[in-house]
Design a protein around this nucleic acid. Structure first.
Lengths: 250, 250
DNA sequence: GGGCCTCCTTGACCCAGATCAAGCGCGAAT
DNA sequence: ATTCGCGCTTGATCTGGGTCAAGGAGGCCC
């Protein structure tokens, strides 16, 4: 069983045919809808580094991530880039109504997406209000996440930025694994230092320095470059400058 | 006729009862829906500086701005604040599903809002798919705008940030007035230097300095502190670092 | 094993923008 | 008319993070 097949197998267990989220999250799909969605869906896989969508491309599909990670980035003419969102498994991408994408979508790791051709998907959305409803809620969540990220970009120091990113990834990772948050959190960073820098509005050197500093101060432990252990999540949150509430992702 | 009455008059001309946008924008409301919306709507007015919603407040209404400007801001414990969006006339605020607001909404100028109690509005949304549809599109637009702003916050210089903000306000202002963009654009800044700084992730001193610099370099003209003339919009766009496309607001 | 990637770390220096501080302009209150 | 206060401007100085530069650590292919 190769990688892609394995992913599809995994997908059929976890995500079923629900276009919106894992079945566990979206319990409202009835079998008629699933059948109709089945007819218009297909899978696409990408290698790490491959571009899924160029900004300005005609978007003739919508879909959700089955496995792997993709990033949304905006680029200026002179090459400065800013990552504006992360797509983790179960995240949705694409929009009704507009033809062209506003930003690049790039596979950060090997990636499998579950896609739906746009026209039939839109038609279905008009007939089944709760899909539009669910999509609206997800989009509002992403909007909140994007706005929270604006606070990170606009007002936080480099150290706080790193801590914010780590806490978001850790939280998201923990929720995918359905662990509670008790005990030390352990995960692999899905991003290179450069990608982290692009997300945080920093340079990769600064990311590296601050990671070293957080390690030196015992806020995180690092094995190799990617494997992270967070002994005390509360401590990390304090470092991130959010002493109470948490953030989400897009 | 006092200010508020005048605003309501203006509203009934421009915005009708459409909860979503000005009638000109949303042509899909039929009279049945308008009548039902009429039953659940009410107006609220606020003075400049008043808080419309505290973050964490129970949100028992949704609504749109009739006149005036409000800002969405997030605040850290130590007082650092970041504006994460602007609400201009016709913009919608509030969300189905979630009870508490994620950020403060503060009236920047005197403000009139057209509100709908949440429960009946949600009920109506479930029955009339195209309202949910329209709301979804608007939310996606705001998401795109928020993400574009992330590029501004993360990667642009102070001068570029100021130019970006001015170009957004100018564009938005021009579209409200239904002017074309030919000829010099003239408008009043609806924000103090401090509010601009909060939006741009800068200090008010830097905002002031860069405004002076743009004035000195002939990119803008200033009469008093607020009245701005933009002789050459293309020039402003170049200063902002977006040489081709444009941004939107939330 | 050795060469050669790519990703990461660390150091030295510099500069854009923050911070601290002084003062201006103008409308409102007395 | 004077004073007050707020929003803004401008100057002087400081500093966090950018920039430039020099390696280090795996991983992979020959």
């Amino acid at each position: 069983m190769n990688k892609v097949t394995d992913d599809l197998h995994h997908a059929s267990q976890d995500c079923g045919s629900c276009p919106i989220r894992h079945r566990a999250v979206c319990a409202r799909c009835d079998s008629d809808e699933l059948e109709r969605l089945e007819e218009i869906k297909y899978y696409r896989s990408f290698e790490a580094g491959q571009t899924v969508i160029w900004s300005g491309d005609r978007m003739d599909f919508v879909g959700s991530v089955v496995s792997g990670i993709a990033s949304l980035t905006q680029t200026m003419e002179d090459g400065r880039t800013q990552m504006v969102g992360l797509l983790l498994p179960s995240d949705f991408v694409g929009r009704p109504g507009r033809l062209s994408a506003a930003y690049d979508v790039v596979a950060t790791t090997d990636l499998v997406m579950c896609c739906f051709r746009k026209k039939p998907f839109e038609a279905m959305m008009l007939e089944t209000p709760h899909i539009a409803q669910r999509l609206l809620e997800m989009t509002l969540d992403e909007l909140d996440a994007a706005r929270e990220w604006m606070l990170v970009l606009g007002r936080k120091t480099a150290r706080e930025k790193i801590a914010s990113l780590l806490s978001i990834i850790a939280r998201r990772d923990a929720s995918l694994k359905l662990n509670g948050t008790q005990g030390p959190l352990v995960f692999d960073l899905p991003l290179t230092r450069e990608a982290m820098a692009d997300y945080l509005g920093l340079t990769l050197e600064t990311v590296s320095r601050q990671m070293s500093a957080l390690k030196r101060d015992g806020v995180i432990r690092l094995e190799g470059k990617r494997h992270v252990t967070i002994p005390d999540f509360t401590r990390l949150m304090t470092e991130a400058g959010d002493d109470n509430d948490g953030g989400m992702m897009a």
